[in-house]
Structures are given as C-alpha cells and as structure tokens.
C-alpha cells in the first residue's frame, strides 16, 4: 500500500451562487504523478488554488504529510511542502532567471533585516548557498545559459521551465503544475514530459492539470476527473478512460 501524501475530504468552495467545488475528496500518494482533468469550468483550477493555499475552502479537511493545512495561508502551505506553477505563467518579469529562482529560496532561508544590513558571516554564507542552489536548479531544468536574462525576454518554453525551477527551489514534496504544456509544440511537450518524470524519479510527487488528455494518459499514475465541481471518477488512466461518466462529461461538454 502506497503512502498517502496529501488527503482532502468533503471540500466545498462557493463563489456567491456558484458552487465551484462540491464535496470533493481525493488523496495523492507519495511518489506518483497525479492528474486532474475535466471539461472547462469543471473546477480544476479552483481545486488547484485550494490545494496551494490561494483560496480558502469553505468546508472540508485538508492534510498534507501529517500536517493540517485546512485554510492555511499560502506561505504555510509552501513551507509545508507544496509548490506550484501558474496556468498563465507568473514570473517576476523584470528579474533575471537566476533571481526568480533565488526568490524561491526565500522560505528555506533565514536572514532577517538586521542580518542583511550587518552582512554577517552566516548571512553571506546563506546568500552564497542560495545562489548556488539557484544555479543548480537552472541546470536541472536545462536553462542555465539564460540565467542572466530577464524573465520577460525568455522564450515561452524557457519561461515554463523557469517557473518549475522556481517552484522546486522551495524544496517541495509535492509539485503542482497548472497546464504546463499549454501552448507548447509536440517536441517541447516531450521535453517537458521527460522533465516531469525526472522530477518524480528524484522523489518529488507531482500534481498535474492538463488539457492534453493523451499526455496525461501516458504520464500519470492516477487521474481524477472533475465535472461541475464534483469528482466523477478517479483511478488509473486505463480505467478512467473507459468510465461512462467521464465519456459523458467530455462528450456532453463538447456537444453543448
């Protein structure tokens, strides 16, 4: 039996009259690549935002690696070990790629204002370590040659990779990726797929939202399907694919 890393139960989220998440429960096991799919407006991104602390759920339970994260603010969620990327890339555009990743180290470093002003030995060492780690991560995702470029000027594919490096800098146990392959060509997508597998093999669990169902089927260990704020199916890709409810949700959405 695999070890459970993340577990939510009975999660509800409402926006005014819209019941965006309705009694959602799921668990993610350590070391797997877990996919979240569903038609547009099914509540994937809302769930994603709940899991990463950006939205506070109205009801439910949320535990992660033994700690209670229900309604925890983002910085607690991140320090607990969940990091994310954004569907519409949100880098710090005027910072260099290297600096972007260094910001990701914030939560794993300690220097306070006084230390920064006095520039004590421990602060200098920490700063050097931050930079070294940032370089390491840029190499890890394969974009160290653009370290000194401003994020704004990077190609789309590089921006995606940079966002992943920045998220990895927080040393997550769970890396949550919101449509990382959106807008990529097939060869870039292949590269990304390899990167995600590498990340998983290095011990980081991956949560993935993606429209590209083919990519998801080939990559994910397990998949959950959302429709109208409810989880309608969950399981290994081969089973989910044949689930009549899933087929109906997708066909229904396509025909409406």
């Amino acid at each position: 039996m695999a070890e459970v890393l993340l577990k939510i139960e009975g999660i509800h989220k409402r926006f005014g009259g819209l019941h965006a998440l309705n009694n959602v429960a799921l668990h993610i096991n350590k070391g797997e690549i877990y996919g979240l799919i569903g038609p547009n407006g099914a509540g994937k991104t809302t769930l994603f935002n709940v899991l990463t602390g950006l939205y506070t759920p109205d009801e439910g339970q949320f535990t992660f690696d033994g700690i209670d994260l229900f309604r925890a603010p983002p910085h607690i969620v991140v320090s607990g070990g969940i990091a994310r990327t954004f569907q519409n890339i949100r880098l710090f555009h005027e910072m260099t790629a290297l600096e972007n990743v260094m910001v990701g180290r914030h939560i794993r470093s300690k220097a306070n204002a006084l230390g920064a002003v006095l520039r004590t030995k421990s602060v200098r060492q920490e700063e050097a370590a931050i930079e070294a780690k940032a370089w390491e991560l840029l190499r890890y995702v394969g974009i160290e040659d653009v370290a000194y470029e401003r994020a704004r000027n990077l190609s789309y594919g590089h921006q995606r990779r940079l966002e992943i490096a920045r998220a990895l800098a927080t040393e997550p146990k769970l890396l949550a990726l919101d449509e990382p392959a959106a807008g990529m060509n097939p060869s870039e997508t292949e590269g990304l797929k390899a990167l995600m597998e590498k990340i998983r093999n290095d011990g980081v669990t991956v949560l993935l939202i993606e429209h590209d169902v083919k990519l998801m089927m080939g990559l994910c260990d397990r998949i959950a399907v959302l429709d109208y704020g409810k989880k309608i199916a969950e399981g290994v890709p081969e089973v989910v694919r044949k689930d009549p409810k899933v087929i109906e949700a997708y066909l229904g959405a396509a025909h409406s």
Binding site: T52, G53, L54, P73, P74, H75, V77, V78, S79, A83, R84, F86, R90, L91, F92, H93, E94, M95, E99, M102, V103, G104, R105, H106, I107, S109, A111, N112, A113, A116, V117, R119, V123, E126, E127, I130, R166, A167, T170
Partner: peptide, 30 residues
Amino acid sequence: MVSRLQHSRIGRAWVAMREDYIAASAMGLN
C-alpha cells in the same frame, strides 16, 4: 543599509512582491 537590504533576501522579496504579489505568496513569501 538600504543598498545591503536591496541586495539581500529581503530586497528580493520586496521586488517579487512589487512585481506580482500572487506569485510571490505562492512562492511562500509572507
């Protein structure tokens, strides 16, 4: 004082917050 702050962990956090505070909080910045 200010130039050391600017080139520190704190200074980077300020700039990150200025540029995109949602992304900054998603990076764990308080």
